[in-house]
């Protein structure tokens, strides 16, 4: 195979893109979520819930019209990086991480974002959303391409996530009960800031299923179905169950507040079925960019994080 001379992606460009992704994520609601909430507002029959949904729709508009963050809890900014196997980075991965951290500090000052990241014990705040293990950067890889993709996501922090070690005997009913339990915990009083996208990670290890639940909630768009028909059917069943809870926005009675359910699986220990659930709120802040070696940058709303390669089950 001939050796291809690959141009290195500039670290200064990555810094600019990291800033711009933070800005875009904070202000503009992605179309899939905006449309989903508008549709729910249209269909809602209870007046309190309808009032809340219409205010949410209005808030999306105010944010864009006046270029304000849609929610002042700009969460914990984090990045998902998909790296082409043939991509070259100026300064390597250390430079990439430095650029992403600088882009986050720049955005905190200039968008502005709220500086949410503090030391967990001393509560010290650098006022720039940067610190130990902050912002988080998660990586995945893509064969046969020379670009990199960055997704900025601003994750709310306190509520709407849980984990349980289930066993094969718990079965699908065990999954359904856990789905309802997390709604019972966090939809009451609107702690999840629903309507929410419900991400579910099943299998793997504890940390893997928690990671997959978060990625399923944050990195798949409303309406996307898992390519495995059996899992896709479970996603639809849980959507229906969510609607029937009668828990609407803020926990008021309504036509439900699950925008969509996304399930991801990982091969797990033969004795267990660990599961994690993650609610992503309606103020969904995400933006993706593909950066090419020649300096072209393409911004888009759908991260396309779950590629065939990322979900592969073979040795190859």
């Amino acid at each position: 195979m001939p050796i291809v001379e690959t141009q290195a992606i500039s670290s200064e460009l990555i810094r600019e893109v990291a800033f711009e992704l933070n800005r875009r994520a904070a202000i503009g609601i992605p179309k899939d979520v905006g449309d989903s909430i508008a549709d729910m507002a249209e269909r809602e029959t209870q007046k309190l819930s309808k009032f809340v949904l219409l205010e949410i729709v209005n808030n999306y508009k105010v944010a864009v019209d006046e270029q304000r963050p849609m929610c002042a809890d700009t969460g914990l900014p984090r990045f998902y990086a998909k790296i082409g196997n043939d991509a070259a980075l100026e300064g390597g991965f250390v430079a990439l991480e430095r650029s992403v951290r600088q882009g986050t500090a720049d955005a905190t000052e200039r968008v502005p974002l709220r500086p949410n990241r503090v030391h967990p014990i001393t509560r010290h705040d650098y006022n720039n959303n940067v610190g130990i293990h902050a912002p988080t950067v998660d990586y995945s890889w893509e064969p046969d391409v020379d670009w990199i993709e960055l997704t900025s996501f601003h994750k709310g922090g306190l509520f709407g996530g849980d984990y349980r070690m289930l066993f094969p005997t718990d079965g699908i009913d065990g999954i359904k009960r856990f789905f309802l339990d997390v709604i019972s915990e966090f939809f009451k009083r609107g702690l999840s800031c629903q309507p929410a996208i419900v991400g579910i990670g099943i299998g793997g290890t504890k940390d893997t299923c928690v990671r997959l639940a978060k990625e399923a909630a944050c990195l798949r768009v409303v309406g996307d179905r898992n390519p495995d028909p059996q899992i896709a059917e479970l996603e639809e069943d849980l959507n229906d169950l969510g609607r029937r809870t009668s828990l609407g926005p803020m926990g008021f009675k309504g036509e439900g507040a699950v925008m969509d359910t996304h399930i991801e699986v990982a091969y797990t220990h033969t004795g267990g079925m660990p599961i994690s659930i993650h609610h992503q709120c309606f103020a969904l802040r995400r933006a993706t960019a593909r950066i090419h070696p020649d300096g072209r940058v393409e911004y888009r709303e759908n991260p396309f994080w779950f590629t065939d390669y990322y979900r592969r089950d073979s040795v190859a």
Binding site: E55, I56, R68, V118, G156
Partner: peptide, 30 residues
């Protein structure tokens, strides 16, 4: 608050900052 994440609408209702106290000790968020 409504939603709860309708921060842009609430931001529009704030016309000015009269004062901020203990900014250095507590940081912007606290």
């Amino acid at each position: 608050t409504v939603g709860y994440g309708i921060g842009a609408q609430y931001g529009r209702g704030i016309t000015g900052v009269k004062d901020v106290y203990w900014l250095d000790e507590l940081g912007i968020a606290q």
